[in-house]
């Protein structure tokens, strides 16, 4: 299990255990964490699972794929460390990962 911290825009923190193999998006949906819509269910076509990766973790994630780069254009308030949660596979190495949500999806 990997401990993941999701922080809503208003600062509310949700610390949950996510099974390796799941995506960061599924981890949020399975635990009913608000702020991640994931309308398309993980097809990387809607851009509504946008999160910001905390500085310490940025270098530890694989870089965005071409499709993620294309789809993240749908998201609002995109920053260099913005990611789509459906494209991040949880591994044991990501135990302790902290992500923040944008104001809206």
């Amino acid at each position: 299990m990997a401990k993941i911290t999701y922080i809503e825009f208003d600062g509310s923190e949700h610390v949950v255990n996510v099974e390796p193999g799941c995506t960061l998006m599924q981890g949020a949906k399975d635990n009913n964490i608000p702020g991640i819509l994931a309308d398309c269910g993980g097809c990387c076509i809607c851009g509504t699972c946008h999160v910001y990766i905390e500085p310490a973790w940025r270098a530890r994630l694989a870089t965005r794929t071409e499709i993620e780069k294309a789809t993240i254009e749908f998201s609002t308030d995109v920053e260099p460390h913005s990611r789509l949660a459906c494209q991040i596979k949880i591994t044991e190495e990501l135990d302790g990962l902290i992500v923040r949500m944008p104001e809206s999806q």
Binding site: D39, C40, G41, C43, C44, I45, T48
Partner: peptide, 22 residues
């Protein structure tokens, strides 16, 4: 259980209007 359907396609040509359609 939520498994993504392919109605809006998949990948680079997926439906631009999917948010509007939804």
């Amino acid at each position: 259980a939520r498994v993504p359907h392919l109605t809006f396609g998949y990948g680079f040509h997926s439906c631009l209007g999917n948010a509007l359609a939804r």
